[in-house]
Design a protein around this nucleic acid. Structure first.
Lengths: 228, 228
DNA sequence: ATGCTTAGCGGACTGTGGTCCGTTTAGATT
DNA sequence: AATCTAAACGGACCACAGTCCGCTAAGCAT
């Protein structure tokens, strides 16, 4: 498969074959994505309308909606570009985020826990790292994520990316022998939803660091290994 | 204070004085609430428009919006009527939900844990009971709650009732000597959001019982008292 | 090159939530 | 009872997300 269209998630996309996109269509998708990015960068995300984007991209509204399900879908596509790196780091990067052995001398991102010095990272440490990284990601792209998660009720849970994050979290929990791994994974992600993160940072005035610490605590509790 | 207007939350409403409502206004509020309830009962919640409600209540749209902030606000008002009983049970009912001593012989709603036989319920047991009861409430009024929580982004966290549930949860957690009580309370409530509950019951096909068990486990983990 | 099929296009159109503002009237004051 | 004033009213109005459908042209087949 040659150069998947930008924004394709890394995750093994199930809908593999599916007749190739026509040339003009691809060109327009690109235009739209570009225009949207530009507009979102210049003006506040919620003030940008779909008409604005269509106009800026020099494209009809019908075209917009043929390409992206809805406003949230467009935001999600943009986000998927930006989240690709994080996804890669998780799937194949060094510990503690990824499965590989720790990079260089001493990782700076992790949050202690140090499981001695195994070859592969232990699930608890990976989960903590993921939690911190994901939180940072959400906070960094807050407006866009909020749009993508709330444009339609239940949107957050229907996005393809949700499947990825949930799967990852669930697997780690299961590896840590935690019961009800699936439910607990979803509890964790609910806590990290854009709505919630915005509430914490914008309304309750918490800093990212505060939150990271508190949520790391939550993760430890959920895993429940009492001082292993 | 004589007969507070229906739907007023039990919680000590801070906006105490505030010039009394005019007679016609009160009458119209009632009409709207009634009409809305009727419509929501007959047709699917999401198919009912604000115009429908206004028409059914024999009232202009302006009136509708003068009384209730927005669609979500209207739903919340309806819900607050229905939630009043639960609120009362929590504030002044018997254990394990309320602070009082257990009612009758053996409560049927609680979820084990049995802390011997103290005079007042212990926070852990109360929290578990609350969680189960709240979950059941959410499930029971799912469509309406969903409307009230998602009609505007972040709506869930801005409702007055949220303040109540959060406060209650937080207090119990603090009483159980759990760190970061506030954050953990919000994590719990995020897990119990309408969106999430709908996802669990409608998409993943979980039963209320399944969920209650799994979430009770989450609560125990969060409290962290390792088999006290 | 020419023709044909069908994905792609675009913008008028619809449905709905929410606002605005000129008019009405409850109820207090005299 | 007459007057007055601000709360309440109502429906025309607006903005915006999302749909529809007749037209266009990409790119395959001959």
């Amino acid at each position: 498969m040659p150069t998947p269209p930008t924004g394709m998630p890394l995750v093994p996309t199930p809908r593999a074959p599916q007749r190739k996109e026509r040339a003009d269509a691809a060109r327009n998708r690109q235009r739209v994505l570009l225009a949207a990015e530009e507009l979102f960068a210049r003006r506040s995300v919620e003030s940008v309308t779909m008409d604005d984007i269509a106009a800026a991209a020099g494209v009809g509204k019908g075209t917009l909606y043929r390409r992206f399900t809805d406003k949230g879908g467009l935001a999600a596509e943009l986000l998927s570009e930006r989240g690709a790196e994080l996804q890669r780091a998780i799937l194949e990067g060094p510990a503690p985020l990824g499965p590989g052995p720790a990079a260089g001398a001493d990782s700076g991102a992790g949050t202690s826990a140090g499981t001695g010095a195994g070859t592969a990272a232990d699930p608890a440490a990976r989960l903590e790292a993921f939690c911190a990284a994901y939180l940072a990601f959400q906070e960094r792209h807050l407006d866009l994520v909020l749009l993508s998660e709330t444009s339609s009720p239940g949107g957050r849970l229907r996005k393809r990316s949700y499947e990825f994050w949930r799967q990852h979290t669930e697997v780690l929990l299961r590896a840590a022998h935690v019961p009800d791994a699936r439910v607990r994974a979803e509890v964790l992600l609910a806590a990290l939803s854009a709505e919630q993160v915005r509430h914490w940072t914008r309304n309750e005035g918490r800093t990212l660091d505060d939150l990271t610490v508190a949520l790391t605590g939550v993760v430890r509790s959920l895993i429940g290994s009492p001082a292993a």
